[in-house]
Nucleic acid binder design. Sequence first.
DNA 1: TATGAACGGTACCGTTCAGTACGGTACTGA
DNA 2: TCAGTACCGTACTGAACGGTACCGTTCATA
Lengths: 204, 204
Amino acid sequence: MITNPRVEATRARILNAALDAFVLDGYTGASTDVIAAAAAASKQTVYKYFGDKEGLFRALISDVVDRVHDSIVRLDIDAYEDGEAVVRALARLLTDSVLDRRVQRFRRLVIAEAARFPDIGRAYYEGAFEHTLGRMADLLASASERGLLHIDEPRIAANQLAGLLLWIPSNRIMMTGRFDAISEAEVESGLESGVRVFLAAFRD
Amino acid sequence: MITNPRVEATRARILNAALDAFVLDGYTGASTDVIAAAAAASKQTVYKYFGDKEGLFRALISDVVDRVHDSIVRLDIDAYEDGEAVVRALARLLTDSVLDRRVQRFRRLVIAEAARFPDIGRAYYEGAFEHTLGRMADLLASASERGLLHIDEPRIAANQLAGLLLWIPSNRIMMTGRFDAISEAEVESGLESGVRVFLAAFRD
DNA sequence: TATGAACGGTACCGTTCAGTACGGTACTGA
DNA sequence: TCAGTACCGTACTGAACGGTACCGTTCATA
């Protein structure tokens, strides 16, 4: 694939504008006129690159999923000497990444459009959501092998840690639509109590 | 308020049709033409009762929130003699109600439109979501007072139980758009392992 | 059975929006 | 300097949709 830098820049500008528009107004609510204007591009160019509105939307989703896929949780598990430290580090990484404004907004978009584009929802779920959980499970398994934790089914444990930490803040953010609906202190205390419950179940 | 049965029936038919349409296509995607047709009503009548599209949407939301509010978890906590039974009963009640197709679809709708109607999202979050958690917290507190569990902060514990049980299935359902994405067996094993973790932390 | 309110059906208006056409401009590379 | 390509701006078309108007019909009730 030839990468004309000018083309690439225009394409990126359009995708950026599309992200903003779709995330704010949803698929139906966003208009290609507004997207083109925000990207300082002409509709002509938008349609030339992406075919139609649906093509633009799909390109946007896979673009983001690919980035999530690449930037997946890297944690040097060997640097930690006890289970509590491992779990706390993992918990912080997870909350920091998932409760990020952009991530929350994007997830809301995917959920909102899952009825219209079932394949897109599935792609995101498998490519981003489950992929992250799989990585977490690997880390927990490795900690378990080193005797820091006692985990028989790492995948389930990873799911549970995520649920403990994210259920409340994620729902509050998505339902209220306010991406700053959770204070620093709440995140902190939620993390602390979540880690405590997890350790009660999986440290010896 | 005079309750003309004919008026009431027409109104109910319109709200039912609106629920289906909004849940399927979102606020922007649903059309009042389709809603009126599905309700076997004329647009004239729809607009007479609800003013405009937004009025119809708001009426629908508060209608549903009121119903959730009324049918809130009632569980005879005194019937149980040990903590495990209490938690298991609570867990089943919670998963059965929250993972219900209609509930999931409605929550997705609220999330999808939270940006467009922030007050609606907040009303649902406080009137339905938090209300249920509060009721759960009461039950856990009562079990704790009877010595069946050891819970210092019932509200937090209720949040955590919900997160343990619902994070994965709820996300899978909403993101894939398939409301049968979770098998009976998965629900069962998720419930079992969630209860186990919860008990490890809160039983003695 | 007479009366009026509730209601359905259809046509209509104004606007928005996806998608297209076209003419002109900036850049790039030989 | 010339050719080709990327791109912008604007105007346009056709369809969908929110909302309104009008007329005929149904139905409860007195």
